[in-house]
Design a protein around this nucleic acid. Sequence first.
DNA 1: AGTTAATCGAGACGGTACGTCTTGTCTTGAC
DNA 2: GTCAAGACAAGACGTACCGTCTCGATTAACT
Lengths: 199, 199, 199, 199
Amino acid sequence: MDTPAQKKRPRGRPRCDASRTQILEATNALLEEVGYARLTMEGIAARAGVSKATLYRWWPGKGAVAMEAFMDATKPRIDFPHTDSAVADVTAQMHLLAAAYRGATGRLVRELIGLGQGDPQTLAAFVESYLLPRRAAAKDVLRRGIAQGELRPDINLELLVDALYAPIFHRLLLQHGPLDDAFIRGIAASAFAPALLPR
Amino acid sequence: MDTPAQKKRPRGRPRCDASRTQILEATNALLEEVGYARLTMEGIAARAGVSKATLYRWWPGKGAVAMEAFMDATKPRIDFPHTDSAVADVTAQMHLLAAAYRGATGRLVRELIGLGQGDPQTLAAFVESYLLPRRAAAKDVLRRGIAQGELRPDINLELLVDALYAPIFHRLLLQHGPLDDAFIRGIAASAFAPALLPR
Amino acid sequence: MDTPAQKKRPRGRPRCDASRTQILEATNALLEEVGYARLTMEGIAARAGVSKATLYRWWPGKGAVAMEAFMDATKPRIDFPHTDSAVADVTAQMHLLAAAYRGATGRLVRELIGLGQGDPQTLAAFVESYLLPRRAAAKDVLRRGIAQGELRPDINLELLVDALYAPIFHRLLLQHGPLDDAFIRGIAASAFAPALLPR
Amino acid sequence: MDTPAQKKRPRGRPRCDASRTQILEATNALLEEVGYARLTMEGIAARAGVSKATLYRWWPGKGAVAMEAFMDATKPRIDFPHTDSAVADVTAQMHLLAAAYRGATGRLVRELIGLGQGDPQTLAAFVESYLLPRRAAAKDVLRRGIAQGELRPDINLELLVDALYAPIFHRLLLQHGPLDDAFIRGIAASAFAPALLPR
DNA sequence: AGTTAATCGAGACGGTACGTCTTGTCTTGAC
DNA sequence: GTCAAGACAAGACGTACCGTCTCGATTAACT
């Protein structure tokens, strides 16, 4: 029995996978070193030992390369702890997130979101590949909390996730206050307050 | 006897005020037309009938011009209604803000914040001149609510303002959901819930 | 019994002769349309439905392809009339040549010679395949003139051919004057003058 | 009394004349070293310490720069000897010209004419600035020959100049024979033959 | 009234990156 | 062994802005 959806190899020379890897690695290195604002396509090409034509063949501009490079480097880590309290799990993850956002990751996320404000496709890519999977994971944990009788069953999950994470992004992007543990504790407490069931 | 701190008019030709006005108007027009990303200093100079040297004499770069132009156009409007319920007043203003952010103002705010992610001075200017005055006004209204016995006196005002406004900025910047009235009602309800006193 | 020196058919797929024809036709069409300057190997390949590798397998560069295409299209026509006056025959052919050089052929010849100025192989190919055969044909006619007692037997043929044809190329390439019939009559008269025998 | 046609200085920063000089010098040096075919605008800019924008502000392309540089370097030399025989003077200059064309000047002239075959403006510039002045000088000498009774007064000067110089350009450009003294003697003799008056 | 100095417009300049284009090589599977 | 398809490195192309600069012209307060 044949594989029904067998891969139809296209005609010409196949895409050189080493190039892709080298480009994304070079981009990540440069993002680390100089940030997005001073990232250039020429710099990426030179660092990766790749011609500019190859860059432009596969990505429309530096926004797209940066986004894919960031996604490539950030892919595997959506890590919620798993104890018997969903509220504690989400709160712990919020602390981890804030810690990450205080460092190099924070600068990158800020710059990518900033970049997205002038480039709808980049923003869409960021939301699709980064934000929504994390929100989905959070909602899964919260649904567990509902099933366990920890949270009210009639809460609006979407709204609760916004209430929990929006303040973190707000402070990350506006820098009008610290992203410290006290702040996280405060927003977790006030966001969870109307959703908690007495036990 | 002379006034000791009298304004010492400098020697040469005074700054041409018409230029400033024309520059800010041209910048606002261009921001409306092409957005921040495609705004250029050369474009502003040409549109305002002004030389680039004049631009660079008074502003360090296009970020600063854009920010000042935006501030100039947005200056007068911080308008909280004033009824006998502070909660109702803040909620009403949130609806107004969301409405503004669904239009041209929203695009500008998005782009300016985006721009700020790669340019600390611009971000600081935005926070100082735009965000903080609005937060202060909101806190004033909320303090009135405390004084009137509508809100608990032990709430953390800073945190409450974040809880109220962060979700609006979050959806404005990430575009992962609508900024509609239902959303505003939801976040107002959940953010105010733990702060309300029974009457 | 086998033929001892039989043609050893090479192992693989034989050269596709259709390709060669299509390539030369495509090249001629493009030369007609856009001229040599804007002729590209990619354009030829696309038009001929042929891969670039095939082009580079058989020709070293676009100069060579263009030259061969031109030769292919121009091959058969070296046509001197044949009357009983060699002088009249050569003069008539000069008029025909000038007429051709006033049209599309002239543009091609100009561009090919121009191209040859930066590419010795191309120039050599042009001289070998185009110029020398025509000069040889002219010299044959002139030798007939000598044999018939129309021209002096001690003339330097090489020099006479130069005197007859160089002014045509000169005006073709420098465009400092018209290539019209009066001009041809003039140079024929002055070039033949010292070579004619009184009859 | 004022100068009626006083020079109206244009408004902005005046053109930097050092740039022009450096560009032309760099171009001449590069033409000497690598020839026209491998001359690049980027190379000129780098060598002259000038930005590419400046190059493109004043010249439309590398052809124009090369032409102007060549003219700048070749400007002053139109040198006909002046004896009491116009024929001898022209012949002597033809020998000098052939000598120059056997060297570096010849390569440049070949490449510039070649370049002109695909670029009408460049060719026009060459003809106007190089060819025509030299032809005019030759015609002046020939007119002297007529006035002195050395040449027939009814000759067509334009045609005679073509007959004298076309073969030189022909051999320069087609390289089908040597540009040596014997050749020059031959064409001078045959071109002057029908124009000489018996003394 | 003449001097002085800051400001203005215009626009040339060195610099940098852009995104496109062409060249000539290479790789793969089909024939 | 040759073909079509097409990815690849290299590098020049011409354009667009950047931020700086050099002019002459303008405009007031201070001589």
